[in-house]
Simulated assay, not measured.
Amino acid sequence: MTMLDIITRTTPAGPVLTLRGTLDYESAPRLREEVRAADLTPGSLLVLDLADLDFCDSSGINTFLTARNTATAAGASIALAAVPPPVARVIGIVGLDQIFAIHPDSDSAADSHLTHS
Rank of each mutant, 00 (worst) to 15 (best):
T63Q: 08
V87H: 12
S77A: 14
A71V: 01
R36F: 06
F64C: 03
S59A: 03
P42I: 00
P29H: 04
D107P: 10
L46E: 04
R20H: 14
S27H: 06
A67F: 05
R9A: 09
F100D: 05
R68C: 00
S27I: 05
V47C: 12
R9D: 07
L4I: 06
L23H: 10
T72F: 11
D52I: 10
S117N: 03
R20Q: 15
T72R: 15
A13G: 09
G43L: 00
S27A: 06
G95A: 02
N62E: 03
I91T: 09
E33L: 08
S58L: 10
A81V: 07
A71G: 02
I61T: 04
M3E: 15
A110Q: 00
I78F: 05
G14P: 05
C56M: 13
I102G: 07
D5S: 15
S112H: 11
R68N: 01
A73E: 09
T70P: 09
F100M: 12
M1D: 03
A76W: 01
F55M: 14
I99R: 14
D5E: 15
A28Y: 02
T11M: 00
A76D: 00
D5C: 15
L45Y: 01
R89K: 15
D57S: 08
T115R: 02
L96M: 10
A79G: 08
V90Y: 05
S108F: 02
V47W: 10
P29M: 03
L53W: 05
T72D: 11
I61C: 07
T22R: 14
P104Q: 09
H116L: 10
A88V: 10
T66C: 07
S117M: 03
L23N: 08
S117A: 05
L45Q: 01
P42Y: 01
A82W: 03
D24E: 11
A82R: 06
P15V: 04
L114C: 08
D52P: 11
C56F: 09
R32D: 06
D54H: 13
P85L: 10
S59K: 02
L50Y: 11
A67N: 03
T8S: 15
D57M: 09
M3N: 15
A76P: 05
L46A: 07
E34G: 07
L53V: 08
V47G: 11
S106I: 08
R30F: 08
L46S: 08
F100C: 12
T18I: 13
R68I: 00
R32H: 08
R36K: 10
D49F: 06
I6W: 07
P29A: 00
R20E: 14
L45N: 00
D97K: 13
A110N: 02
C56E: 08
G92E: 03
A38F: 07
V94R: 01
T11L: 00
G75R: 04
N62L: 06
S59Q: 01
N69Q: 10
T8C: 14
M3G: 15
T66W: 06
